[in-house]
Amino acid sequence: MANNVLHMETITMQFGGVVAVNGLTLDVNENEIVALIGPNGAGKTTAFNCVTGIYAPTFGEVSFHGETILRNSPQGKMKKLYAGDVPAVDVKPLIKTPDEITKMGIARTFQNIRLFGNLTVFENVLIAKHMRAKQNVFSATLRLNRAEEARMRRESMELLEEQNLAQYKDEIASSLPYGLQRRLEIARALATGPSLLLLDEPAAGMNPQETMELTEFIAQIRKDYHLSVFMIEHHMDLVMEISDRIYVLDFGRLIAQGTPDEIQNNDRVIEAYLGVSHDAED
């Protein structure tokens, strides 16, 4: 088996009485493109938020390159309420914050674009360099380390050039057309220096032409930056074309996994998407 990058073990996320993700176990291996699909409300974005630390999972463990980044078991009143399929075992919680997780090398984009709207394209990328800058607030204020600032600017500029965004560098991010905003969001995520890129519906709102370009773009950045990609997507053309493996989620539960071919012919997946009634089956 190739090197494991991301491993989710029986991840359960429960909000009050609603179990949004129920015992999800999945893997993303090195240089692999893995897609997470499922009908609306299946819990895909919740699963994403459990990887990036926006939510602390109610139960389960997430590890990245073998290192545990999130681990939890039902605490407090959740102990009584817990309704996941996998019986909870008490573990010592370990919860890293989103910024720590980004620093370890997981970058993400958002379902509804979250750029720094009033800042320029260049600043958007430059901000991603802040976390690794070797300076403190005094040296930054008093301009003691100009070389570091120059390096951040140079690297950001290089990245914009690689992504063909250089000509927009002084534009205000929110004034860009939609497709470019998506591209900028990915460029910004790349600027954090990730080894795993999480894309939450990158093709949302795109026309077939743009979707095709995005498909090529994702394949290209995987090669150029030696990335693993884990994405949520509804455009099946895109998913089937570039995914190495696909996981299918329905009502929080994993109902299928496998290669695109296997998924396309899986009865339970077709049922979940087309809503074949159980009566008809019987």
Binding site: P98, T102, F110, L115, F116, R132, R188
Partner: peptide, 18 residues
């Protein structure tokens, strides 16, 4: 710049490692 990022969108800022 990090301050401005927080002003613009704190969730995005956090996912940028701030």
């Amino acid at each position: 710049r990090a301050f401005k990022a927080i002003r613009e969108d704190d969730v995005a800022a956090e996912s940028m490692g701030i």
